[in-house]
């Protein structure tokens, strides 16, 4: 059994026939070849697969592609709309908010979610907002600095 879906990713609409059990993350990575979104734990804990669904952060390993039918998805590849870097990407670069980089796409989209719901978060609120994203290089300190830097860039 396949189901027709029409999903917009980074502003471009894709019409595909998918198996109902296909996860959104596999639709993004394997069907469309957008490999910025990672599969980490595959159990909705690590956040490596975080994308924006109609603007809100979700874990794409715990969402079926058929559930995203008609939705607008933003992945790390589409966060900056002009081919440059989004302010959060700039801040992660400037503050060394990554080491191996595997968690970074999810971290940046989780940081985007923090700022969407709370434009001026405290360090504690940033840490709580990143609760669902794991960095195994132990780089949280610089990740929090990077998010705070992005807030300051926005407000300055």
């Amino acid at each position: 059994m396949t189901i027709p879906v029409s999903i917009a990713i980074n502003g471009r609409r894709y019409d595909r026939e998918v198996e109902p059990r296909l996860l959104l993350v596999h639709f993004i990575r394997d069907t469309l070849g957008l490999t910025g979104t990672k599969v980490g734990c595959d159990t909705s804990q690590c956040g490596a697969c975080t994308v924006l669904l109609d603007g809100a952060a979700v874990k794409s390993c715990t969402c079926l592609a058929v559930q995203a039918d008609g939705a607008e998805i933003t992945t790390i590849e589409g966060l900056a709309d002009d081919g440059g870097l989004h302010p959060l990407q700039e801040s992660f670069w400037n503050k060394h908010g990554l080491q191996c980089g595997f968690c970074t796409p999810g971290m940046i989209l989780a940081a985007h979610e923090i700022l969407r719901t709370n434009p001026d978060p405290s360090d504690e609120e940033i840490r709580h907002g990143l609760e669902g994203n794991f960095c195994r290089c132990t780089g949280y300190q610089n990740i929090v600095r990077a998010v705070r830097d992005a807030v300051q860039e926005e407000t300055s």
Partner: peptide, 9 residues
């Protein structure tokens, strides 16, 4: 519950 992305779904 969980984390922000989990609470969104």
């Amino acid at each position: 519950i969980g984390d922000p992305a989990v609470r969104n779904r």
